[in-house]
Design a protein around this nucleic acid. Structure first.
Lengths: 217, 217
DNA sequence: GGCTAAATATACTCGCGGGTAAATTAGAGC
DNA sequence: GCTCTAATTTACCCGCGAGTATATTTAGCC
């Protein structure tokens, strides 16, 4: 069939469509396939936006048809949520990681910023940032809000810790956390993966700016 | 008719639906009406998002039918663009305003930040931030990109000026501008107009943070 | 090699919403 | 009061895309 033939010619990106590329190579690991669906969706959402990406699009990028996608995920909203959660987890891990650290609050905050930048520049970055309440059902919206709030609280408590240990100048922790999160989240809007600038480099410059400030010392 | 009666009961918000509220009060000024359409769209987009707002929604908020909206605006995309432009103009004005100022670069930058925050918290703020290329035709996308770039260049040149006159510590102006714009744009994501926090207050805290930095001096 | 369950595909439904053609109403000028 | 234009409405079209009912294939298992 023409269909079959066409499928073989699809370029095989890492960990994505390759899973389904040839019938013989199909792996039966359900988890893996589900992850591939989510990953592909994340990339598609990032490139074309949530509303401009149909499930048919995602399916065809996976060399599969729409009902197959529905076999791994309840609906489109859930798909967005999974992308969101995957990205958010990267950040949460970064924050968690610093819990047992014994360095100053400022240093721990800097470490979290680095991980945050890493997460935002990942395939899931865009979804994390764009998963607005507007596109979600009330129930989902609540979940997303709660998760986002965890990140916010994590940042604030690091700032507070820094103020307490003297490594951070006393400041409005809420506004500071918002400014930080804003600058970081915004990366998703301008970052292109083919950019020369690596996440680590961006994080480094941001840390310097936020720590030192614009005014000469 | 029941339709007419219902219209009279619509609450009349400032400068919006009131224009059409009663037949007798209809103003013939085309400009004014067009502006009302744009304003109403901006509010709706902010509340429910671009894709979740239909032109029927906007029309009905104006106590009018969809074709009337089309009488003032070519299509939905154009409508988003107009909202975007209206918001952007506020910022451009702020930058322009500082061109003839003779103060230091850092002070001028602070002034622009204030105006920026003001613009972002306005009804048009959300549209400005959300008018992503993804939802726009290639032609529109180019226009939006060009306008956004103007803002970016404005910020960078202020930073450069500050570095030159010694009021700003030498830094990567591109990353600094991105961080600033990010923090400011992000306001649109969390700001609610009924918030106690006024734009001026937010701007003030942001300026302090960006100027002084987190590290104690 | 036949049985069963999971995986995938075919072939639909259906509503929403952008956009429009054609009629109707309002109003300015005479 | 008539006419002509601008403003507005009624009543549509139509495509896209989310979601699904049903058939078919695949693969593990005895």
């Amino acid at each position: 069939m023409a269909g079959r033939q066409a499928r073989k010619n699809i370029p095989q990106r890492a960990s994505g469509p390759a899973l389904w590329a040839s019938v013989g190579a199909r792996v039966r690991d359900r988890e893996r396939k589900r992850d591939a669906v989510i990953m592909t969706a994340a990339r598609a959402f990032r490139e074309r936006g949530y509303h401009n990406t149909s499930l048919d699009d995602i399916a065809s990028e996976l060399n599969v048809t729409k009902p197959t996608v529905y076999h791994y995920v309840e609906n489109k909203e859930q798909l967005l949520f999974e992308c969101f959660r995957a990205g958010l987890k990267l950040i949460m891990d970064g924050i968690e990681e610093q819990r047992e650290s014994t360095t100053t609050g400022r240093e721990r905050l800097a470490a979290v910023i680095s991980r945050y930048a890493e997460a935002i520049t990942s395939d899931f970055g865009w979804c994390m940032v764009q998963a607005e309440n507007q596109d979600l059902s009330p129930a989902m919206s609540r979940k997303v809000k709660a998760l986002k709030s965890e990140i916010d609280q994590g940042l604030r408590s690091l700032i507070r810790a820094g103020v307490d240990d003297g490594s951070i100048r006393p400041c409005d922790e809420k506004m500071t956390a918002f400014a930080l999160a804003g600058a970081l989240n915004w990366i998703a809007h301008w970052y292109r993966s083919d950019d020369q600038l690596a996440a680590a480099e961006i994080a480094h410059r941001f840390i310097e700016l936020f720590e030192q400030g614009l005014q000469p010392r």
